[in-house]
Structures are given as C-alpha cells and as structure tokens.
C-alpha cells in the first residue's frame, strides 16, 4: 500500500502545468488527491509524473455570475458545500455534496477533481450533466469548453486529452422558481451510489411542468440523462400517475448488469423510486401544488 516511484512536479502557473503535461504522455494531475492517492497506494496506476497544481492561484477562485457558478480546479468540495452564495445560485451542489464521501474527504477533495476522475457512480458528474453544465479546459493550443454530455465518456474516462488540464467547472445558476433535488442510495452512507438521481424542473403558474432534467449516477458506465422520464414529466401536471410513469420509464436507463452489490433489477427499482421521490421533492420546491 505504498505509492510507486514517480517524478513530482509543482506547477506555479497553468502554462507550467500544460508544459509538464505536454512533455510526457503519462502524467497525472494532483489537486486534492482524494481519488489519485488511493489509486497510487494500491499501485493501480503508475504515472511517470505527478503535476501538483495546488500552487496555481487562479485555480482556487470561485466566480458567480448571473448565469453560472464557476468553480476553479483547486476549490475544495467542502468550500463549495458551505458557500452560501453558491447555495443560493445552485442549491443542488450543497444537497449533493452531503452524499459525497465524508466530511474530512470533502475538506481536501476538489469538485473538479471528482468530475475529472469521472467515476460512473460519483455524484457530482451527474449533477453537472443534469444541469447542462460544462468544464473549462486548457491545453497547448489554448482554452476550450466541453459540455458535460460531451465530457463524460466512460467510467474513469473523459474527453480530456493527456496534454490538457481542467481549470474550472461551470454549473448553471438555477432560475428562481426552479425545483431541484438530489438523492441516492449507497451501501453505507457516504459510499459511491448504487443509484443516485438528480432532478431539475420548473412548473408554470397552472401547475404544468415546463421543463425537466433528470440525471443519474451508478447505473451505467457514465452519468446518464433519463430522457424517457423527462419526456413524460414535461407537460404533465406532476400528478401521481405522471411521476409513477416517469419512474417506470427510468428503469430502462440502467445499463449496469447484475453485480455482487446490486442486481440490475434492484438498481432499476432504486432508480425508479428515487426518480419518484426526488421529483416530488423538486416539485414541492418549485412551488407546484402538492
């Protein structure tokens, strides 16, 4: 349980980090280290070089605009969790972060690190996906933005190139009146989800659902949008039947086959149940009539 040998490089600017990335195709970015260090301690990975980005000042910034919450790559999860302005702009982050590992891990783990690690059962990627967020990336050829749907490719695999660095994650601000909820079932509290569901929806003054975004983690090889459920909910009055139908529609999104922790059928049932319960919570927050 000790890391293998590697070269340690401390980047003081984004340019230095990119240069170090470009110089070797087997590097790893060291930010909070809460996913990387276990991988190294288990010797499941053997990067030639670790690039420590913690001393790059610009990566520790949080920016909140009218449309986006932009979270720099060195911002710790706990900072985001307790940040009241972020909570006002997008309350999903605080609700979700309570499910991300445990407090002490969130003290050091970064939001961007969790996204870039891209565990298919991790909570934050499903939130970025559901909110239609994006990540900002810098590489040798400059900066680019990658939409969440494009970014998450597979379990532990993203669209990031080996010579690039994610500098920030951008979560859209939820408009006033938007309903939202995140909930999950894990084997123990704080573990990766068996299934987790993120809901963002809005309701008009007549009680009709005008938009609905639902995303899930733990059910496939990447975070997955529940389009079937969304279609059923949009235009409905979010009545019991519609919500039940949305839950049932979500079942087919489960890709994960039976494993020793959960059968596919159990995952489907958890997913359907969480869709129903989280839609109910989100609808209440959106001010829909009960």
């Amino acid at each position: 349980m000790k890391p293998p040998q590697f070269e340690y490089q401390r980047a003081l600017t984004i340019e230095e980090a990119i240069a170090a990335r470009a110089a070797n195709d087997n590097t790893a970015i060291l930010a909070g280290g809460q996913s990387l260090l276990p991988t190294l301690n288990f010797r499941l990975g053997a990067p030639d070089s670790l690039i420590d980005i913690s001393r790059i000042p610009s990566l520790s910034q949080i920016e909140i605009t009218d449309s986006e919450v932009k979270i720099g790559a060195m911002v710790r999860q706990r900072q985001v969790e307790i940040h009241d302005e972020i909570n006002q702009a997008n309350p999903l982050l605080r609700e979700t972060l309570a499910h991300v590992a445990h407090l002490v891990i969130r003290n050091r783990g970064t939001v961007v690190g969790s996204l870039a690690h891209a565990d298919a059962a991790a909570e934050l990627p499903s939130v970025l996906l559901t909110c239609d967020g994006r990540v900002e990336v810098v590489g040798p050829n400059g900066a680019r933005s990658i939409a969440a749907d494009e970014f998450f490719r597979f379990h532990l695999t993203t669209a990031l190139k080996p010579d690039e660095l994610v500098t920030a994650a951008c979560f859209p601000v939820l408009a006033p009146g938007t309903g939202w909820a995140f909930g999950e079932i894990a084997r123990r509290r704080g573990d990766y989800a068996i299934a987790g569901v993120c809901v963002v929806l809005s309701v008009d003054s007549n009680g009709n659902c005008t938009s609905a975004s639902l995303g899930a983690c733990g059910i496939g090889s990447r975070p997955i949008r529940l389009h079937g459920a969304e279609k059923i909910l949009v235009g409905s009055r979010l009545d019991e039947d519609a919500i039940a139908a949305a839950g049932d529609a979500a079942r087919e999104a489960v890709e994960t086959p039976d494993d020793t922790q959960a059968s596919q059928a159990y995952r489907q049932q958890v997913l359907a149940t969480l869709v129903r319960r989280n839609v109910v919570r989100a609808a209440a927050r959106a001010g829909a009539p009960a």
Binding site: I185, R187, Q261, S263, A265, Y266, Q269
Partner: peptide, 11 residues
Amino acid sequence: LTSNVLHAALD
C-alpha cells in the same frame, strides 16, 4: 441481509 438480498426476496 443486504438491500440487494431483501430486494430479491421481495421480488
């Protein structure tokens, strides 16, 4: 009696 086991029994 994990949740998975209980689910199977209920199923």
